[in-house]
């Protein structure tokens, strides 16, 4: 598999707090990579460095590099809006805009200059089909996104992210606020999407990582402890700390 994202010696500081320590990782394209580890170990922080959402937090400092297809995303030649268009993100809490279902999906394409009604209609339908929401909402596109259930809202947020045609999809504990059935639907969706997108997901739930990911990275205190094929990591971990974590001895 080709490497899409290459993280080299990445260090991140929140003020004086050293949140990521010498993280080096390669993330292959068109596969699912899961970040696991106890709460506060830096999973979300690393995920946010991939679309530079950390730029928004005052006082963060980054040393090292993150290359996507060979370009360092922290270099001057990359503009952050284009980066975020290519690297979509789904958050922990479903966060639709207080707008109609249609306008939620069309928000991104409109930002990037698409005005044609016909083109927008196409994108809306295609994105909702990709997130397996189309059949449930196709007759209610003008309704408020808040009228949807939590699981539907999260699939709407996935559709919204897909509507700007990204290559990479980041998901930060995207199912942790959902019920088991909605969670299952999103896990199935991730399986379908990985044919077309590179997916990086943070999960609090080891079983989810085992079920849906191809590669798994285990973090502890801002450091990568172990990174390997998911099957390998769960059946035959090389590091004692990984074994302790996946057998439930801490976390």
């Amino acid at each position: 598999m080709n490497t899409l994202i290459d993280i080299k010696k990445l260090n991140l500081y929140y003020g004086t707090y050293h949140a990521l320590k010498d993280v080096s990782l390669t993330i292959p394209e068109k596969a699912v990579t899961a970040f696991i580890g106890p709460s506060g170990c830096g999973k979300s922080t690393l995920l946010r460095t991939l679309n530079r959402m950390n730029d928004m937090i005052a006082g963060t400092k980054i040393v090292g590099s993150v290359e996507i297809t060979g370009t360092d995303i922290y270099s001057n030649e990359v503009d952050v809006e284009t980066l975020r268009k290519k690297v979509g993100m789904v958050f922990q809490q479903p966060n639709p805009f207080p707008k109609s279902i249609y306008d939620n999906i069309a928000y991104g394409p409109r930002l990037h200059g698409i005005r044609s009604k016909q083109k927008l209609d196409e994108i809306v339908e295609q994105s909702l089909r990709q997130s397996v929401l189309w059949d449930e909402v196709k007759d209610y596109l003008k309704r408020s996104a808040f009228s949807l259930s939590g699981g539907q809202q999260q699939r709407l947020c996935i559709a919204r992210a897909l509507a700007v045609n990204p290559d990479i999809l980041l998901m930060d504990e995207a199912t942790s606020a959902l019920d088991p059935i909605s969670t299952l639907k999103i896990e199935e969706l991730v399986q379908e999407l990985k044919d077309r997108y590179t997916i990086v997901m943070v999960t609090h739930n080891m079983h989810q990582a085992a079920r849906v990911s191809d590669q798994t990275v285990f973090f502890l205190n801002g450091e990568v402890v172990e990174f390997s094929q998911t099957e390998q990591l769960f059946s035959n971990p090389t590091d004692q700390r990984t074994e302790d974590y996946i057998t439930g001895r801490f976390g």
Partner: peptide, 27 residues
Amino acid sequence: VPRQRRDASFALGATRWQTVSGSVLPS
């Protein structure tokens, strides 16, 4: 206006003004 609404907009590649005018001000 909840921070998540700004994040959602920025994560789609919006500039600051696009986020303010498209997401924050309407709310």
